[in-house]
């Protein structure tokens, strides 16, 4: 394949055109020099910042920035009747939305396939990790339980939304306070007290670390939006604050060694940075 570049004196415009027309070759060139297009090393993570409690209309909220990827999550609490088969359990309904504003390839309308898959992954990760025991949401068995709608919206899409969204959802849950509710047997209604609010009894605070494998060999941590479609394999490791493995997901060909390498890289990242993620004042 004949590639036209100007060695040495590539202008910005030529580099941009090359990036658009031959994205794979563009990335290969960077990887050969042991660096990525945004200047990071292969195992380097972007900066993460978490802000909570900025939305007054929600019971709990969090804004997470992972590099340029920005996800905002809000928790709304409502009251419903429990499922007949699970009369003492409340509901936790996580969802993520990728609106058209977050990136040029998203169209307005119902959730795209990517948003649906992300919603499902987030829901299964949060449920399987046991972040919030659903029995804590029970107000009165068989009559009234809390429903927590955890809705995340991506404001800016620059790759690796799964990690950012998981942190946003868990941080928003940690920030949530529920009014104390009492169920009146005679009237069949639930009354809430505005004065007494208590936080949720979270059992586990998971953090996710996503890696991508490019060209079968190079493992890139925290893939950006440009790198994501070029990856052959994507691996996500979810750890809790103690470093225990909660979930391992992988799609695409990978060796056993790659997986264990990713797990240790995730643990390393947790040691250096992970513990302060959820340590914020409420």
């Amino acid at each position: 394949m004949a590639l036209q570049t100007q060695t040495g004196t590539s202008t910005d415009l030529n580099a941009q055109i090359f990036q658009r027309l031959h994205p794979r070759a563009y990335l290969e060139r960077f990887i050969k020099e042991d660096i990525r297009p945004d200047g990071r090393e292969a195992t380097e993570w972007r900066d993460l910042s978490v802000h909570v409690g900025s939305i007054s209309t929600a019971n709990g909220s969090a804004l997470v920035r992972l590099g340029d990827t920005t996800v905002i999550c809000g928790v709304k609490a409502e009251i419903a009747e429990p499922d007949l088969e699970r009369p003492k359990e409340g509901f936790l309904v996580p969802n993520i939305d990728l609106p058209a504003l977050c990136g040029p390839r998203f169209k307005p309308g119902p959730p795209s396939e990517e948003a649906q898959v992300l919603s499902d992954r987030l829901a299964s990760t949060i449920t399987a990790a046991g972040v919030l025991p659903l029995s804590a949401l029970c107000i009165h068995p068989e009559r009234a339980v809390w429903v927590l709608y955890v809705d995340a919206t991506c404001i800016n899409y620059d790759g690796n939304v799964f990690d950012a969204a998981l942190i946003a959802m868990v941080a928003a849950l940690k920030n949530t306070t529920l009014p104390t509710a009492t169920f009146n047997e005679e009237t069949g209604r639930t009354m809430c007290s505005r004065k007494l609010r208590k936080p949720l009894p979270l059992e586990c605070l998971p953090v996710s670390y996503t890696f991508g494998v490019f060209d079968g060999t190079t493992v890139l941590a925290d893939p950006a939006a440009f790198e994501e479609p070029l990856l052959d394999t994507s691996i996500s490791i979810v750890l809790d604050e103690g470093g225990a493995l909660l979930s391992a997901g992988q799609l695409g060909i990978a060796d056993k060694d790659t997986m264990s390498m990713c797990v240790s890289a995730a643990k390393e990242r947790l040691e250096t940075y992970g513990r302060e993620i959820y340590a914020f004042l409420e």
Partner: peptide, 25 residues
């Protein structure tokens, strides 16, 4: 307020849920 029906493109909660009512009216 109430979530109506089954939205097959989202994770769903219970069929109907209501806003909390406060005792100070």
């Amino acid at each position: 307020m109430a979530q109506s029906g089954f939205d097959r493109r989202r994770v769903n909660g219970p069929n109907e849920s209501l806003q909390p009512v406060y005792d100070d009216g």
